[in-house]
Design a protein around this nucleic acid. Structure first.
Lengths: 101, 101
DNA sequence: GCTTTATGACCAATCTAATGAACAAAACTA
DNA sequence: TAGTTTTGTTCATTAGATTGGTCATAAAGC
């Protein structure tokens, strides 16, 4: 499933790049990476750094979270609220949890 | 914006992990990575490999594309169709494109 | 309160990705 | 078709992440 998401993301990037009329070299330059790395990303390789992938995603206009920049800030804030309400560390009872599956 | 998406994803993972009652060590073990790396991921660092991040995302039950596994396959197929319709390479006219911004 | 456990941070050694160059093949244009 | 550009791929080197260990702090449970 991870693999599938990755290849899908790669295809989305490839399509987005084509729609914007960018060559691989051009997009790589704008993202500050090599064409080789961009090729890996579009291929859906698991290796590339998530930061560079997200940068490329942003450059081709993809929205991973289906929300725009402003929404990200707001949502981020709400996540912080949720985080403060949560216990700071996960603690196990004496008996092990058995939610393995 | 890339940075923001990364920190947000990290928080989502952290929350998801807490909701599932997993310690950092446990989640790291399941993902096959070290606790140090998981820490980086939850911190929203750009360095970690996208493959491992997606694996963690999947382990805590997050849905990046707001779709389940079956939807991924279908969507993937439709992306392939779109890809075949697209020109195989982006070609520039003699004159440079001037969509720089 | 005390004890135990989880987390955050840092480190050197190791492992792996990123790079840039080069080449071949494919694809677009004239 | 000929010629040019884009892309796919490989490879050695460079750069940077991952690891496993340890310590200190903090938080949860008793």
């Amino acid at each position: 499933m991870t693999r599938q998401a990755l290849t899908m993301l790669g295809k989305l990037i490839r399509i987005g790049r084509a729609e914007r009329g960018l060559t691989a070299q051009e997009l790589a330059d704008r993202a500050g990476i090599s064409r080789t790395t961009l090729s890996s990303i579009e291929k859906g390789a698991p290796g590339p750094e998530i930061g560079t992938v997200f940068e490329v995603v942003s450059l081709v206009g993809l929205r991973l979270f289906e929300s725009d920049e402003r929404m990200l800030q707001v949502y981020n804030f709400r996540l912080d609220e949720k985080l403060t309400l949560l216990p700071k560390s996960v603690r196990h009872a004496v008996k092990e949890v058995d939610d393995d599956f």
